[in-house]
Design a protein around this nucleic acid. Sequence first.
DNA 1: CTGAAAGCGCTTACAG
DNA 2: CTGAAAGCGCTTACAG
Lengths: 323, 323
Amino acid sequence: MPTVTLDDVAAAARVSRSTASRVVRGTGPVSAEARRAVLAAVEHLGYVPHPGARALASGHGERVVVAVGSPSADLLADPYVARVVSAASRAADTQGVGVALRWLGLDPRDELRRLARDPGVGGVLLVDYTADVLASVPRDLVARVAAIGPADGRVPSYDVDAAAGIAALVEHVLATGRRDVVMVTGPGWLPGSRRAVDAYEAVTRAAGVPRRVVSADLTTGAGADAAREARRRWPGVDALVAMSDTLAVGAMRALAADGVRVPDDVAVTGFDDQPFAEQAGPGLTTATHPVERIAAAATTALLGRRREERRTFPSVVVRRGSA
Amino acid sequence: MPTVTLDDVAAAARVSRSTASRVVRGTGPVSAEARRAVLAAVEHLGYVPHPGARALASGHGERVVVAVGSPSADLLADPYVARVVSAASRAADTQGVGVALRWLGLDPRDELRRLARDPGVGGVLLVDYTADVLASVPRDLVARVAAIGPADGRVPSYDVDAAAGIAALVEHVLATGRRDVVMVTGPGWLPGSRRAVDAYEAVTRAAGVPRRVVSADLTTGAGADAAREARRRWPGVDALVAMSDTLAVGAMRALAADGVRVPDDVAVTGFDDQPFAEQAGPGLTTATHPVERIAAAATTALLGRRREERRTFPSVVVRRGSA
DNA sequence: CTGAAAGCGCTTACAG
DNA sequence: CTGAAAGCGCTTACAG
């Protein structure tokens, strides 16, 4: 079963290889008739472009690299990153390309430059990045980048409506009668941290309840510390709204260890609906996000010619036992 | 910053491009002197072969596809598969290639044939496969395949020492005084199921305690059903050894729902140490496996020229609250 | 709107 | 052991 090449398609459609290439790529002027003939041939022969040849000829690479922009390499082993890579790989497969995973390291600017001139790179999917990372995407790479997370107006972004999700969570605990709600947010370098706090403040202000925020790294240990800090500073706390499931799980553990009942004494909510959320304590109430769909959409957009400036996906509350 | 090509290397080393190619690829006869010069030039110029060009010229593809061989597509979203893909993507990145994820579907033989003649495929990493899948790897693909899981002697495999892991777990519950240990194994199509039962039987036989096995699909629901079936058939059961964390978690939930205390009344163990294992119930006692290292080793081997016939990684008991 | 031609960076017989 | 040459399958100015 010999591979079907563009020449086969051209021959079948009775046009030149140039014309066949134009309609397959969807660029340049082509007559409606030629387009029709080529498309029919493609369909009939089951033609799939050779990604390597394409990369060679165009100078543009083929594989997409998922670039982790966090200051620490820990997140490379994060289940969330794994979900993104996995979904991206699935989407990439349908396009005949592959996905590589790389940490941008301590000098993201430098690594992004390297990526920009790597002949093998077709696109870059940014995750867990800081504002700095976004700002240091080289000009000539912008057209081949998509970010999974908050937008900055420069790089197209595929994101969750975190403001709505956090707001819904805060409203949920308020609706169950809680009045002393502490927000456990992430580290300052994470753009999402600010956003979560803003949403929390808007809702609590409107409800006329106090605003209380503690910040922590995205680990269970930090979540535990944050819970203890919250109880020390505000002994009356009756709800903890965390910006990540990991933080929430750590908080629940500290609470349990300290003899505080969840949700009876203190309600706890997370964010993201990781696989472990369901197993943790009485079941973690959180917001669920279509990570797979998001990653797939970003990958497909990156590989296609059609990229939107930004796209927002829903953040939906999942009620379980913890709140 | 123009890309460094093989011609640059050849020029710097004062040899022909052919010779440069031979030493870079590590094939064919080359004088020690030529090799030294080329290697030095590669190092000095920071040369990285263009994967696309290589694929085009050699006819061999570049990307590695992680092929999920389970009868159902569900496992594509499995956290374990995500970990494998993620680790493979990291390893692939260092080789300048990417990873695609694909389900082999209901007709694995057919899909494997497609993979074998896809010009873009450099290697295939098999996961969650059946013996049938292994047997239907086309001859001309065998040299580009590695399996993550039990071996069959035909395809090189990278696997965990599951027999030792399960045995250690069974010994652990026996050591804590349990006498009525039920093995909850996976579905028949999974090669690992048989292996787990064999290990369990060897240990229980040696200890002179009864052998009791129930089989279930790898879901929490099935785990719950299995726990209930075990208690119905053997009311005295005091330990459940499951062949996966998912099964164990489901079992723990059913037990809790039925008012049975873990580990006081019934000890429970899992297998794999998924991220949620730590969060489940009193903390799941299980066996931990270096999935990232395994996947990385398999990927690197696939992409290099050096593949071993099989390689086994340790399975280590992690004691937590459930047993 | 279309086609002939050059060239992308490599590998691989082939001749020496 | 080494090098000149053909060719992998595509894209892209360029001329028409």
